[in-house]
Structure formats: C-alpha cells, structure tokens
Design a protein around this nucleic acid. Sequence first.
RNA 1: GGGCCAUUAGCUCAGGUGGUUAGAGCGCACGCCUGAUAAGCGUGAGGUCCGAGGUUCAACUCCUCGAUGGCCCA
Length: 1071
Amino acid sequence: MTDKQPHFAVLPPEQPAREMEEALLERWREERLFEQTLAQHADKPRWVFLEGPPTANGRPGIHHVFSRTLKDLFCRHRSMTGHAVSRKAGWDTHGLPVEIEVEKALGISGKQDIEKFGIENFNARCRESVWTYRQEWEQISGRIGYWLDYENPYVTYSNDYVESVWWALATLYKKELLFQGHKILPYCPRCGTALSSHEVAQGYEDVEDPSVYLALDLADAGDGRVKRRRIVVWTTTPWTLVSNAALAVNPELNYVEVRKNGRDDWSLVLAESRAGAVLGQGWEERWELLATHTGRSLAGQRYTRPLDWAEYPEGNNQIIVAEEFVSADDGSGVVHMSPAFGADDYAAGQRHGLSFLQPVNARGEFPADMPVVGGLFVKKADPLIIEELKKRDVLWKAGTLMHPYPHCWRCRTPLLYYARTSWFIKTTAFKDRMIAANNAVNWNPPEVGAGRFGQWLENNIDWAISRDRYWGTPLPVWVNDADPTERQVVGSYADLAAFSGRALPADFDPHKPYIDAYTWPAPSGTGTMRRVPEVIDTWFDSGSMPFAQWHYPFENAEKFRAHYPGDFIAEGVDQTRGWFYSLLAIATGLGDALHPGAEANATSPYKNVVVNDLVLDAAGQKMSKSRGNTVAPAAVLERHGADAVRLFLVSASQIWKPRSFDEAVIRDTAGRFLLTLKNVYKFFAELANFGWSPSAEDPLPEQRALLDQWILSRLSATEAEAHRLLEAFDATSAARVVMEFVDEDLSKWYVRLSRDRFYDVSAPDNRAAFATLQECLVVVCRLLAPLAPFLSDWVYRELTGTSVHLAPYVRATPFAVRPELEAAMVEIRALATLGRAARESASVKVRQPLGAMICVTGRLSAEATACVNALAPLLMLELNLKKIEFATSADSLVSLEAKPNFRTLGKRWGKETPRAAAVVAALESETLRAFEHGTPVMISVDGTDHELLADEVSIQRRASGALVVQEDGTRFAALDPAISPELRREGLAREVVSRVQRMRKETGLQVSDRIRLEISGPTEVRDAISVHREWIAGEVLAESLVTKDTNQVGFNAVAVELDGIAAHIALTKDC
RNA sequence: GGGCCAUUAGCUCAGGUGGUUAGAGCGCACGCCUGAUAAGCGUGAGGUCCGAGGUUCAACUCCUCGAUGGCCCA
C-alpha cells in the first residue's frame, strides 16, 4: 500500500448531470477556457465557421439546440485537430419579425398605426425589442456548451454593419445588378410590403377558396345555330374579375362547342379534355357537339367582360389570346387574364398590349366609390362578386376548392399577387455562376445541394429586395425628385457626407426616419435628391455577414481576407432558400469586388455545409406552437443534462433525417451510455486510489497482456475512425463508433475480463492493466469532447489534471492497430457466445467448472491463429473451463462441410450457379480434407469435370460425437458437459465462496475485514471444503474455517442452499 | 402537379459496389454475477425487409409502377 491520498475523484452516483455540468461551466468561465483554446491555436491554419445569426426576438427551441450542437461539435473537433477556428456570434436584428413583435407589444397593427405612433419612436422600440430574448439565447447556447465569441458579436443594425451592406448594394448598382422594376410580386396587404420568393416559401397553408366557372358571351355569332355563344372561364379569385382584360387559351389544345340536346338558346365553348369535369359524367348523352376549335383559332375573338365597374385605360381588352402556360389540368382550359394580379397575366399583358387595370389600393381594398364592393378587402369581396355574377347571368357554376395558398410568414394574412414597383437584385444575370459555385460546395447530405438547392437555383428569379417598411437597412438610393432617372447610390457614410455636403453627426443613425432628412441639390442642377422610402429585405443583411461582420471594406481588410470564403456553415434544412441562398447570391453578385478571381472561377462563400432536418415530437409529428407539442430546451437540459441531449440529437439518427424527440429515448440511449462511461471510470478510479498512478514502472504497451494490446489496438482504430468521420462531417457515425467502443469493447469485454487484475496495484500485470485502462479513458474523453464536452472534460481533468478541450483530438503516436489480434478476438468472443449457449443448453451454470471445450474458428491467418491460442486462457476464464482445444481437420470428431461461395461461383457459372452450388455442397468430408491439403477436386456440372477453385468454397467444420455443440456458420464450440466428482467439488467450493461473499456484504463488512467461518453440511459439502480449504479461506479472508456435520448447526448460523444442497454458514468478524 | 427523403423486430435504428441463417440497442422472457452494486453480464423469443410487377443463376439491395409518412416547391 501507499501513503498517497486518493487522487481520482468520483462523481456521486446520485448527482444529476446538471450539477456537474453547471459547476464545470462556471469553471470554464473562470479559466476563460474558450479564450485559452483560441489562443492555443491562434497561429494554426484557419478554419472559418460562419454563424448564421438567429433572430433575437424569438425564443430558442429544441431544433436550435440541435443545429447549435452541430455547429459546436465540428468547431470543437477542428480546433482540437489544430486549427484556428474563429467563431463570431451574430444577431439578426432587422426586419418584419421585429416590427410585428413591436406592433403586438404596442397593441397596434398596420402601417397607418405605425405612422401615427411615429417612425422615430417605433424604430426605437424595434431596436430595444431585438434584445428581448438575447439573454435566453445566450443562456441556452451557453448551457449546451456552444462556444461562440459572444463578447464581440456582429449586430446587423449597427452603423458599421449597415455601412458594409450599403457598400454591397452600391457595388451591385455599379455592376448594373440593382434595378427598379415593375413586376408581379407576392404582397402582404397587412404588412404593406412585397415579399421575396424565399419568404413566400415559408407560408403556404391549405385554404378553401371559391372555384368559379363563368360563361361569358362571345361577340362572334357563329353560324347562327344558337342565339348566344358563351365561353367557359375558370377562376379561384373572383375579385380579380373586376380587372379582367382578356381570356387566354392554349393554342395547342382542342376546344369543343356544345349545346344542351335540342336547345338553341346558347352554346358553351371549353377545352375538350375538361368537358367531363365541367359538364359532369356522361355529358355526351346530354350535350350535342356543335363544333371543335383549336385554341389557335379562338385567339383574336372578342367577348364581353363579366363586370364593368372599372374603366379600361388604353390597350387591348375583351379579347381571347393564345398562351402556352394555359393548362388543361384543371378549370375549363380557358383562364381569365388580369395583368395587375398575376405573373403570367402580367407577362401576357405585355405581349398583347392589354389594358392594365389596378383597382385595388395598398391595403388590398377596392376604391370606396366602386359599386357593390367599394371599400372592401378583396378576399372579402368574393361572395358579393359571385352574387353579382349570378345576377348578371354569367355564372355557370360556383363551388369551393381546397388548395395550398401562400400567406405572409409572419402575420398569416393571405398574400396577393400584385403588380408593384420594387427594387431587385438581378440574380438571373449570374444564375450560372451561382450554379457553378454551388457545384463546388460540399453538401452534407449531397442531395440537398444537388437536388433541393440546385433545383431552386435553376428556377431562379430576380430577388426583390425592397420592403415598404420601417425597421431595416435603408435602401441607399437617392432619386432626383424632378427627374426620376437621375439616381445616386450611396456606398459609404463618407459618400453620404460628401453628397449631402455636411459632416455626419457623432450620433449618426442610418435608420429611418433620420436618414430621410439627408437631401441635396441634384448634381444635374435642377431638383433635389431624396432617398427612396424603402428598406431592404433582412435576408440581405444576414447574407452579407461574411464581409459585413468585419465592416469590410472600410476596415479589417486583412481579417476579412483571412476569413473568406468560410469553411463551414450548418443550419436547418429550412434555411436552404433562406440564408444559404442569400449568402451565395450576394457573394456571387459582388464577385471580384469581394473575392479576386471569383467571377472567372465561381466560388461560394462557404465550402462545406451541414444540413440538419427537423426535430419532431415523440410521435413523429412536426413541432409547432399551434399543436402545442413544442419542447422547452431549458427543462430538457435540466432533466437530462446537456451531454445527453447533445449525444442523443447527434446519434439518434443521421442528422439529415428528421428525428423524433423522445425524452425516454434520451435516457435509454445517450443517458445509459454516459452512465456506462461513468461506471468504467469509477471502477478505475476507486481501485487506482489504492495506490496506482502512472509511472515509469508501468510496463510498456508491448510488454502488457495480450488483452491490453487488444484494447489498445481497438482504441487506436476507434480514434482513427472517429477522426475520419468527423473530417467527413458525419457526426452521427462518429458518435456511434465511440459509443460502441466504450460499451462493447471497453466495458463489456476489457473491464469485465480484467477485473481481478485491478484488485492489486503493484505487480507489473496490475500496473499494466491500470495504465491500459487509463489510456483508454483518456483517449475516449478526447474523442468524446466535441460531442459531450462536459463529462469528457470532468473525467479527463481527473485523469490528467488538464482540460480535454486543450488536448489534441488524436495522439501523435498511437499504439499500432493490430488487425490479426483483433480478428483473433472476434473469434474468441464468438466462441464465448457459443460456449455460453452450449452451457445454457446443457443447463450448467457458469460457476460450475467444466472439463473441456473443443472449438474450431473461422479461417484465420497464421498470425491470427497464434493470437487465438494465446487468448485461449481468457476463454477458459470466461467460460470456467479447465481446457480449451482447437480442433484441426485431422481430429476425428470434426467433419468438414463445403459451403458454396455464391459470389465467386456466380461469376464462373452464371445460370448454372445453383447446380454448381449443389455439387459443391455435396462434397464429402474426406474430399474436402484432401482439398485443404492441396489435392485438386473436380466437380461435375452438366456432364463435364471442372476443377474446383479455392475461393469457390468455404469449408466449415462440424462436430460429431456426444458433445454439446453450438455453431454459427464459420465456427463451432463443442462442450463436454460431464461433471466429474472433482469438478463437482470445485463447483461447490465456488458456491461457498460466492455465498460467503454475499453474506460479508450483507453484514456490512469492509473489503479487508477478516472473518471466522463455521459451515455445517452433508459430506459432499464438507469434502469440497476440505479439498479447497486454502483457496476458500483466501478468497473470503477467513482466519479460521471449521466444518461441521449437518445437525451441528452453530449459533447465529444462516441456512443456505449450495447448488441444491442445504447447509448452514455462520460468519463472525475476526477482531 | 413536380423534386427530395423515408418505410427493415413491439420501439429507435444499422445493413459499400446484388451472393443464400437480415443485425444492434431498448423493451420482453429466462438466467448469470454479487469487490463497477442506485451497477454489471448472458441466453432466448420476436422480421412475407411497405405493396405489385420486372431485370438476374441470385434482390433488403437495381429498375418500373403504386401506397403511406415527412420536407420543399408550383
């Protein structure tokens, strides 16, 4: 023994993980550990992580914990592998979400209310509101151990950030990529602004809309067979009929003209393929075909519009036009054109010079003086319009239709497609470069990049970036109020000062309304330059973060260049069209201005992307506030600890698959694993505290037991594999590899088989065991550090005295992997399984020693076979056997069987494979024995003889004889179940020891306490004890051991049953 | 309507380039161990691999069509 104090602390088993983690967080703060890791690698190669800024005015959810875990773990891994990993926090602070929060808080709604409240006050509120949840975000992020530089975050509303964004916009303007256009855009009438396509993508909802068929009169009377000719028109937006300018048909489609049987009052024209759907099943019975027309022939015909409340301005109207986009999938094959309210309609209007009617104001209401629907919100006007159509006898039929319709992603108002003036980035001009850049990005998983995102880029449309709102980066475009074609785009605050002719004040604020006070005489001489009223899409802000976070190009040019392009981003799949896109679009648009050579050789602002899928609830349902199945991260972290939650999220399934979030599963998987690790460490620590610590006396690995070398080999293999997987961004597999090593190899096999080697601390073999287990734990902690940063650090500190987060991920000189040894152990473990099964089927418990087992392994190299022989004692111990024999083919109890190898046979025999296989399978044991020794064997398939090739067959050994046999295809174990009197005595002796040990424990004795024993029992028991007296006494630390006859039961003796035999044991402490 | 992903044991998931006993963990049943003990370990029972066709000597694996669920888009 030693006079050293115990030096490996142990976690109290009842302590919740939370307590250990929180104490550790406090310690990290005190040590400034994160800063230490940054300093440690400051001069190493850079690995740039770009943090997608969360909006700080929504609460963090469990899915945020998921993506933040991923961000953190890859950053930690790259840091541990010797990279300078910069991690700047950021906050997305502008935009509609913020405005809506403030509107809610103020109890107001809509732009009129905001203007009444005052833009100055409103924006001041927005600026504050942004920080509402900041504390919660930092708290959750900190709690899960997400290391980010929160002390120097980028904030998108800061003056520096806005100036960089202005620079980007001015640069795009110079490249003629920023323009004002008039296009049909999805528009939120409540928020009063247009939305970009990626915002629309967030808000599809299933709604019930009217489905209305009209029958409009055609001007051409035709051949006079009917009095009225009418054309059937379909729409789901009756309110747009007020601004109807034309009808469109598909030039390639066939249209039929029909009348009710025998009636000459009117006819209907509609697409042939839609007749059944519109007129009803069996329409041919009830309707008479008058004529067929092609779409092309209908073009140019005139009709009468359904509603005449709005005056047509100049242009063509009430005419049928031919357009390819008209589909015959639904409706009547005739669609109504309202150029102000649909993208296709608008384009058709341009092509055909149609009248442009826009009788709806910015709030989505008809003018107050309009008949019937005056002043109404358009969607509310639908029923009145349908009523009016009926009155005017132009309604054919009206119903409803469930379909997905876009809604404002923030306020849920149905969007209207409006022709509006807006500012655009001409992304279509550099679409090809975006696609090329994207092709070079390493997407994980690949199909999101190639499929989802690639497809999106293919269908790219210009990015509408202006917003008619208040809290955002102001669009830095000044226009001459006397001549709108005269424009200046301000790319810096210096420009602004120069143009306006006045120095900017110290408290300069580039936001509305202050910025709009900056006006100046137009350079051309007449008029005043005034800023356009819009602010920009907040996605443009976040997409600018690679340079704007450094206030590039105004300062930090070096820093920016060192951090561009980014190596790594990770976000949820919902960001595909959000941040992933805005980053790419802005960087590609800026091209060489951002990154020299970017235009010639398209580069993405990020090289590697990890996309994670959704977190679903325990039942696999999407989490949403309306379903009420969201999970509050703080409570979950409280219950399970951050390590378990992180490990669960990463390892439960591949991160790019949706995962169900089930707390019971956290406990059963990640929680159980961490418990196993804790237990292994505890086993080590408690026993090492008897006096082992690492020293030069520990045998070198090569001199340690083969079992030690085996686990060290497995450790090295696991280390290399985990590292490789993390390099490849496969966190799930990495986590599983490490977890499996700890559970299967270290805990279930190494520790279990080595237990008694730890019961002393001084002999070389004991020292070897301690040194080996210590090494395993140390390395496991490192491998686990990115995944479960708390427990790994706690244990590592106990083992080494330093933080795991300052350690390298992989060792410089790991123990060499020994595949032959590992292969041998696979055999040993398989044989152990077979041996246990054999015991079970022979109904002999492990405590009862047995004589011998004869086994055969799978085919092994000579070196591996030698290892198997060397490892055989482990098998004897594990199975409590006196002898293990490895049978060879020559043994009489072994017969050989041929198992055809279909893979190789198939190549040679093709169709004849089954027959060849049958011939091979039928080969006799003797033949195979000869074959193994090199004698050629001929097999006869379809009459001819062919020589059997070695790799066409695998030869298996089977036992014959009276042994208990278990086999698994390539190996077998044959157990001799006979229990000789000698074995029986030994079994009983072990029974006694086991029983006494339990009693010692029940009596509360210390491990080292000495005892006196009195055992009464029949002759059989007394015999067994007398033969094994020494051994028993040694095992249970008995100073005296007296045996007595069955009827001489001592005072305070306990009745026991020893393998079915009644006996009494009296145990007293020896004082 | 289109794209992508999934569907394997009661549950959660593994199953390169097709090869003949489809695996693991949890749960369940039975048992072991009792000096890792608020632990540890073993054995076993559970599967027409979503369905239908096809290609092939051979399909969980490849192809086609469909079903169901999820995400995304029109």
